[in-house]
């Protein structure tokens, strides 16, 4: 808890409390891996239980899925650039890339919500079948995470405007960056084991 500052390190690693927070967040991400792993387990067990309702082939549109995927992939890249600029101590670069990241993320959420509305109009709701229950829950949880991330990153951006780049704001930015990349990692698996798998079957 002592504030022994080590200026040889990047801002986000300079204080002991920052190092604790970053490690703590990694451990939290470990828990998140298992949380999503469980949702994937549920999805994998229930993914052929349509109860007479629609199937993946009836619903999935590869074009929309690819747009969502590329939006999120690109946002992960721009988020990486934001952290890169932060380590160059370039506040404006950081803010620019971070805001682009969030816009891409918002685009993703917009697409996903539209996708869900579309499914519901086709009569595919959470209550239709076990497959759709698990589909909406897995994707909904991911989408909720992305939305939370947007709100959270907005708070951090406000704080960077208020306080500039300090060890504390740098740590917060770094952690939201980790979170954002992680959500992209989860999406890779959703893309593979939900969409591609569903369309191949």
């Amino acid at each position: 808890m002592s504030a022994n500052v080590n200026t040889a390190l990047p801002l986000e690693y300079q204080t002991e409390q920052n190092r604790l927070n970053i490690l703590g967040f990694w451990v939290f991400l470990g828990a998140e891996i298992i949380l999503f792993g469980t949702l994937f387990a549920v999805y994998s067990v229930l993914n052929a239980r349509f109860a007479g309702g629609p199937t993946p082939k009836d619903l999935f549109e590869i074009k929309d899925v690819m747009i969502e995927t590329i939006l999120l992939l690109t946002s992960s890249f721009t988020c990486g650039l934001a952290i890169y600029e932060m380590r160059r101590n370039n506040k404006n670069g950081l803010l620019l890339w971070l805001i682009i990241t969030l816009l891409l993320g918002a685009g993703f959420v917009f697409m996903e919500v539209n996708e869900f509305i579309h499914y519901v109009h086709e009569g595919a709701t959470m209550q239709t079948s076990a497959w759709l229950s698990s589909f909406f829950t897995l994707l909904g949880t991911h989408g909720l995470h992305v939305s939370m991330g947007i709100g959270w990153a907005t708070m951090v951006i406000i704080q960077i405007f208020q306080r500039g780049l300090t060890p504390v704001t740098a740590r917060k930015t770094f952690i939201i960056g980790l979170y954002w990349h992680f959500l992209d990692v989860v999406w890779i698996f959703i893309f593979t084991f939900v969409y591609l798998q569903g369309m191949v079957r």
């Binding site: 451990v27 991400l29 828990a31 891996i33 298992i34 792993g37 994937f40 387990a41 549920v42």
Partner: peptide, 17 residues
């Protein structure tokens, strides 16, 4: 941490299936 989390997830998925 990440690898062990991933392994638990694999156990949960493969084991459940």
């Amino acid at each position: 941490n990440v690898i062990s989390g991933f392994l638990v997830a694999v156990v949960a998925v493969a084991g459940s299936i």
